[in-house]
Design a protein around this nucleic acid. Structure first.
Lengths: 208, 208
DNA sequence: AGTTGACTAGACTAAATAGTCAACTATCCG
DNA sequence: CGGATAGTTGACTATTTAGTCTAGTCAACT
């Protein structure tokens, strides 16, 4: 009973977009309300704080964007290393597109937010860790599959996943700081080298 | 003539410490003044804004901390790959120590600040880029030297430096987010593998 | 059609924050 | 010593921000 509303969804979308474009600390509740076209009273009807909204927004990001994309890109029906290169090539293109659209390379919202709030906002930090942990499994799995197929040199999957995540997130961070998506262009190749891929992998044409 | 003061230095130190421990956006001018034991009026006597202070603080960080340490660690009198492993091992220890002291892994202030302010505060961002650019030269140089000595496989130094920076900064970022310095323990080994070092390198005992 | 409960509106308070200013103080240097 | 200059102080204003509250609106279901 009572009426229904999508104001909470609009708030999550607005919060994520603003925080991604600026930063967690630079975005105010009023900013979010304005962008979402929701009044303060409604904001506090749905959420108790910016942190609570941020947690909900991150979970929505995972559920509606990341998980579907990861599930399809890291499908077992695709060769392990191709999953990775496809994913990274698409990511590169998306960052190029974002820069063309908003004038900035925005990188990975989870990592940016996570680093910013790590010593504050423990709930937000916990959600970031949770999401990054879920994503890590895709990397570990792809490494194990590549090992099983013998397309990479022997290694410890967990350790390699850590290095892989470091390389990827690190370059993404640099791309944001430098506002230069071209830093990400060779990410697929760098990744294959890090993994010591044995043979050339079919890489989607990295034109741009 | 007139009196002298070190209030501006105290402000830089306080700003850097607070921003590192929290984040750029979470730290207010009042916070900085309190920590530095300087009154607001004096703050505005020396600086026009938090951004201007941040720029000065970053430059001081470079001049008094980073440059001296890099110059001594990356001395040409040391074997190229040993420079790197020593640097990274020391870095790991410093992060362990920081965690023991303040309870948090704080990572690299330049990268954290850079990512946070990249789409705002263009002066701060420019200074971060400048400093990261200076640091990059040490990496490129060490790669070139290692190539010259034949201790790593042939590669393009600029490209390898990008990958190296990505790996290092990426793992440092993860360590901050996860508040776990152990992520950095294998950084020297991962780095050698990324560089395809040909033989075992004398690594300072990585006990801890 | 009416009742109920979900949602909205927006004015309001209190606190935090940036930034200003004019009077004051200490130190340097001649 | 005494004047000029560098630096200090803290109260002040204006603005922004988080968070509250009450009256009201709208849609679902009976």
């Amino acid at each position: 009973m009572g009426r229904t509303s999508d104001a909470d969804e609009r708030l999550k979308d607005a919060a994520l977009a603003l925080i991604w474009e600026e930063s967690y600390g630079a975005v105010t509740i009023d900013d979010i309300c304005t962008r979402a076209d929701v009044k303060k009273g409604s904001f506090y009807y749905f959420f108790n704080s910016k942190a609570e909204l941020a947690v909900a927004a991150l979970e929505k990001l995972w559920a509606t964007e990341w998980k579907p994309r990861l599930d399809s890109t890291f499908s077992s029906s695709v060769e392990p290393l191709t999953r990775l290169t496809t994913y990274l090539t698409n990511f590169y293109h998306s960052q190029v597109e974002t820069k063309a659209r908003v004038g900035r390379v925005l990188g990975c919202p989870a990592c940016s937010i996570g680093s910013e709030v790590s010593t504050q906002e423990i709930d937000v930090n916990a959600k970031v860790r949770e999401i990054l942990g879920r994503k890590r499994r895709y990397y570990e799995s792809v490494i194990r599959d590549a090992l099983a197929e013998g397309t990479i040199e022997p290694c410890d999957p967990a350790q390699k996943a850590t290095a892989l995540i470091g390389l990827i997130e690190g370059l993404v961070g640099q791309a944001r700081i430098m506002n230069d998506p071209e830093i990400l262009r060779n990410l697929p190749a760098m990744t294959l080298e890090l993994l010591r891929a044995k043979q050339p992998v079919s890489t989607p044409a990295a034109s741009a």
